[in-house]
Simulated scan of single mutants.
Amino acid sequence: MDTSWQNNPKLADMDKSKLEMLQNLAEQGTGKNASDMLPFLMSAATQGKNSGLRFSSEEISTVLEVLKMGKSPQEAAKLDRIVSLMRMIR
């Protein structure tokens, strides 16, 4: 799995434990289809909260920005839709 995203300068100030959690999430989410992604991400968010990891709004925006780099407009739009759905469910 490509971990180069972790070296993005925009993530330089993020706590290493948060980056590790994101890497584990990326590994577990590999190969999931769009219909499985929302429940998977909701479960991951709950696990993160239970373990005491809290992401600020700025950190979330930065992670999403990094995730969209190099993606097609369709893939970026799909990510935006998933995030919007997660916000509506909360």
Rank of each mutant, 00 (worst) to 15 (best):
P39T: 04
L38Q: 12
S4H: 01
Q28E: 14
K18T: 11
T30D: 15
L19N: 05
N33H: 08
M14Q: 11
E20I: 02
W5M: 04
D36Q: 14
M37I: 09
K18D: 03
K32F: 01
A12L: 01
T30W: 02
S17Q: 12
K32G: 01
K10E: 13
M21D: 03
S35Y: 04
M42H: 03
Q6I: 13
Q23Y: 05
D2R: 13
P39V: 02
N7I: 02
S4V: 08
D36I: 04
D13W: 12
D36E: 15
D2E: 12
D15K: 08
N24L: 06
L19C: 03
E20G: 03
K18N: 05
Q23F: 06
M42Q: 13
L25C: 13
G29Q: 09
D15W: 13
E20D: 13
T3W: 01
K16N: 09
A12C: 04
A26Q: 11
L11R: 00
D36Y: 07
S43Q: 14
D13T: 14
A12P: 00
L11D: 01
K32T: 01
D13N: 12
N7V: 04
E20S: 05
M42W: 00
N24W: 01
L11C: 10
D13Q: 10
N7P: 04
L25M: 14
L22Q: 11
A26M: 13
Q28L: 13
K10I: 00
W5R: 11
K32D: 02
S35L: 11
P9F: 13
G29V: 08
K10H: 08
S4Q: 02
S43V: 01
T3G: 06
M14C: 03
A44Y: 00
L41N: 09
N7G: 09
N24S: 11
A34F: 15
Q23H: 04
G31T: 07
D2H: 09
L25Q: 14
L22C: 08
D13K: 12
Q23L: 15
N33A: 09
N8M: 00
N24A: 06
K32Y: 02
L38G: 01
S35M: 12
T30K: 13
L11P: 01
D15E: 10
N24M: 07
K32M: 03
Q23W: 08
W5H: 10
M1G: 15
P9E: 00
P9R: 00
L22W: 02
M37L: 12
Q6A: 05
N33G: 12
L19W: 06
K16Q: 14
N7E: 06
N7R: 07
D2I: 04
D13M: 12
M21V: 03
P9N: 00
N24H: 10
P39L: 03
L38N: 06
W5S: 05
S4Y: 00
P9S: 00
D15M: 09
K16D: 10
D13L: 14
N33P: 03
S4G: 09
T3V: 06
Q6K: 14
W5P: 02
L41S: 08
S4R: 01
A34D: 14
Q23M: 13
A26R: 15
N7L: 11
E27A: 10
L11M: 04
M37V: 10
M14K: 07
S17P: 05
G29C: 10
